[in-house]
Amino acid sequence: MYIETDRLIIKKFEECDADEVFTIYNDEHTCQYLLHERWTNENKHAHFQKKLANHTLTQNNSISLAVLYRSQVIGDLSVWYTGMKDTVEVGYTFLRTIGGQGFATESVKALMSYLFQEYGVHRVQATLDARNEASIKLCERVGMRKEAHFIQNFWNKAEWTDSIVFGMLASDLP
Rank of each mutant, 00 (worst) to 15 (best):
F154N: 06
T58R: 02
S107K: 07
S71E: 14
E15Y: 11
A66W: 10
L65R: 00
G102K: 13
L77F: 07
V88L: 05
F116L: 03
E133V: 05
G99Q: 13
H47W: 14
Q72M: 12
S163A: 12
V21S: 10
Q117L: 14
F48W: 10
A126W: 08
N60G: 01
L128V: 11
I3C: 02
A53Y: 15
Q72T: 10
S62K: 06
E89A: 00
N156A: 05
E140V: 11
F150V: 01
N153E: 11
F103E: 00
N61A: 15
G83C: 04
D27Y: 04
A46Q: 05
N156G: 07
M1D: 04
A126G: 07
G102D: 03
I136V: 15
K109T: 08
S71M: 15
L128H: 11
N54L: 12
H36Q: 15
K146G: 03
N41Q: 10
H55S: 14
L65E: 01
L95E: 03
K50G: 02
G83P: 02
I98L: 15
H36G: 08
T30V: 05
L35I: 14
Q59V: 12
L34S: 06
A18K: 13
V121T: 02
D86Y: 06
A148F: 10
N153T: 12
E106W: 10
N43R: 09
D129Q: 03
I9W: 15
F150I: 05
Y119H: 09
D6M: 08
T87K: 03
F22C: 01
C16G: 14
W160D: 04
F154M: 06
D162K: 07
F48L: 11
L8F: 08
R7C: 06
I9Y: 13
R70Q: 13
L34P: 02
C31M: 13
L8K: 02
N61Y: 13
D6R: 15
V142E: 04
E118A: 12
F150G: 01
I98G: 02
L68Q: 00
D6Y: 13
R123S: 02
I9H: 13
N61I: 06
Q59W: 13
E133S: 02
V142L: 05
D172M: 09
T56W: 14
R70K: 15
Y92D: 00
R38S: 06
S135Q: 05
S64R: 11
T161E: 03
E140L: 14
H122T: 05
C16H: 15
G120N: 04
G99T: 11
L35E: 15
I151T: 07
F94N: 00
L173S: 00
Y114P: 02
Q125S: 09
L57V: 04
G102Y: 13
K157R: 08
W160S: 01
A170Q: 07
L34H: 13
Y92A: 00
E42Y: 09
G143W: 08
